[in-house]
Design a binder for these strands. Structure first.
Lengths: 206, 206
DNA sequence: GGCATTACGCTACGACACGTAGCGAAAGCT
DNA sequence: AGCTTTCGCTACGTGTCGTAGCGTAATGCC
């Protein structure tokens, strides 16, 4: 979350309940108002805290929304479904379910847009949202290699490159489908996507 | 662009020069200020027009930025490079070059984020930005079929589905690589992406 | 218990951008 | 000419921003 100062052991501690109330209020405001109409004063009122308390903990709207949205991705996991295809379909459907929620739709793209001009914000997004997703890619590939479904990478550099590539393809496709094309990434779509991802374009219409 | 009223033939016509000056000023402001700090008053000053003139032509910041960014995609085309792989690499590199420009980076994601709560804005984006890109997918596939590189789709419904899927995969991957991972979609990356797209995951590390 | 320290709620404030109204002047058409 | 629409300009009420200041509440340390 925000920058902890572990050296401060004296004085009144920050209310942990206020943190959760503020983040929940932020998500609710995202649902009802969207990113642009969301104001920090309104969030403070919803959470039952003073506006100044909010500014003492977060630098601004983007930082607050990143933390509020990041909690949505806590539920992401990668259960072993027995095959690479089934693993991919499972995790993509989870990701799609999160992106189907209005608080994720309005919040996520907005903070990414803001991060194009704010290096610190991009790092915050990477640490609290992106890295958690990317770990699933590495896990899934390791499993597929163990099953003999994928050849081991040529070396560590090549392994990192291809993991980054696969991550951009998977996450990018789901995000684009959901937010730009504005169509649901439902089971049928995910099946088609997995087929292309595993077999390439020639297998698209099989 | 904005809603033309062809019935109005009398009175002083709108200055076409003002349109181009406003859109150019919008892109310049996007580069220097980004989306959040961009104000319509500032754009009007840069363009040398009154703020009221701007409001007479565009409903608000999102609509203005959509039109300003859409012009960046005018240069997209699909030259015949002889093979499907070469065609894909060519158009993806063009798309990546546009997304590398700061006015596209800051503007595009912001209006997409805004469009999650604004149906009219999403339609505007689709008509002036997305459809132009999607046409390239259809063209590229038709060429590949003519060359015998891809099998013809099973039917018109399946053809539309797979075209939408491919479009989301290609555009999504490039956007995610550029804006979320914040890494350049350079020639090396595009080669790897094309290999995966054509041959599937097994071909990733070849 | 008393003290220092930090967080909290509240109020008030200047700064800024928003979007609109009203006016006179300019530029086209018939 | 006369009509119509756009343009530049000024001014205004509204809302949000982010901060300052104050008194109060909650903890750790002596």
């Amino acid at each position: 979350m925000q920058s902890r100062t572990p050296a401060s052991r004296t004085g009144r501690p920050r209310s942990a309940a206020a943190d959760t109330a503020i983040l929940a209020a932020t998500r609710q405001a995202l649902v009802e108002l969207g990113w642009s109409r969301l104001t920090l004063g309104d969030v403070a009122t919803r959470a039952g805290v003073a506006k100044t308390t909010l500014y003492r903990r977060w630098a601004g709207k983007p930082e607050l929304v990143v933390d509020a949205v990041a909690e949505l991705f806590d539920e992401l996991e990668l259960p072993d479904r027995g095959s690479l295809a089934a693993d991919i379909e499972g995790v993509v459907l989870q990701f799609a379910a999160i992106l189907a929620r209005p608080e994720a739709r309005s919040g996520l793209m907005a903070v990414v847009a803001e991060s194009t001009r704010d290096e610190a914000l991009r790092e915050r997004i990477r640490a609290s949202i992106v890295d958690r997703q990317k770990r699933l890619v590495l896990e899934g590939r390791a499993r597929a290699e163990a099953r003999g479904e994928l050849p081991p990478p040529a070396g560590p550099a090549e392994a990192a490159r291809s993991a980054d590539l696969i991550f951009d393809v998977v996450a990018g496709a789901v995000v684009h489908r959901t937010l730009v094309s504005a169509e649901p990434a439902d089971e049928e779509w995910v099946r088609g996507f997995t087929r292309v991802l595993l077999g390439g374009l020639g297998a698209a219409s099989a």
